[in-house]
Simulated assay, not measured.
Amino acid sequence: MNADLIFYTNPMSRGRIVRWMLEETGATYDTEILDYATSMKAPAYLAINPMGKVPAIVHSGQVVTECAAICAYLADVFPDAGLAPPVTARAAYYRWLFFAAGPLEQAEINRYLGVTPTEQQARMAGYGRYELVVDVLDQMLSANPYVSDSGFSAADVYVGAHVIWGLQFGSLPERDAFKLYAARLTEREAYQRATAKDEALMPPPAPPIG
Rank of each mutant, 00 (worst) to 15 (best):
N2K: 12
A3L: 11
D4C: 03
L5Q: 10
L5V: 05
I6P: 07
F7H: 11
N10D: 12
N10Y: 05
R14H: 12
R14G: 10
W20M: 08
M21S: 05
L22Y: 08
E24H: 03
T25W: 07
G26R: 08
G26K: 05
T28G: 15
T28Y: 08
Y29K: 00
D30I: 06
D30C: 11
T31E: 09
E32F: 07
A37P: 06
P43G: 06
P43M: 03
A44L: 06
P50A: 09
P50Q: 02
H59T: 08
S60N: 14
S60I: 03
V63C: 02
V64T: 01
V64M: 02
T65I: 15
T65G: 02
E66R: 04
E66W: 07
C67N: 15
C67E: 15
C67W: 05
I70Q: 14
I70Y: 03
I70C: 10
I70L: 02
A72M: 11
F78A: 11
F78N: 08
L83G: 04
A84L: 10
V87I: 14
A89K: 15
A92E: 13
Y93V: 04
Y94G: 11
L97T: 14
F99E: 10
A100N: 14
A100E: 08
A100S: 15
G102N: 10
G102M: 05
E105Y: 03
Q106D: 14
I109H: 07
N110M: 13
N110R: 13
L113N: 13
G114M: 00
T116A: 09
P117E: 09
P117V: 09
T118H: 00
M124T: 15
M124R: 14
Y127E: 10
G128H: 05
D135R: 14
V136A: 15
V136R: 12
L137P: 01
L137Y: 00
M140D: 11
N144A: 12
P145F: 06
V147W: 01
V147K: 03
A154C: 09
I164T: 09
G166M: 03
F169R: 12
F169Y: 06
P173W: 10
P173E: 09
R175W: 11
D176I: 13
K179T: 14
A183T: 12
T186K: 04
R188L: 08
R188T: 09
E189A: 14
A194P: 06
T195P: 01
E199I: 11
E199C: 09
E199S: 08
L201M: 15
P203V: 05
P204M: 12
P205M: 00
I209Q: 01
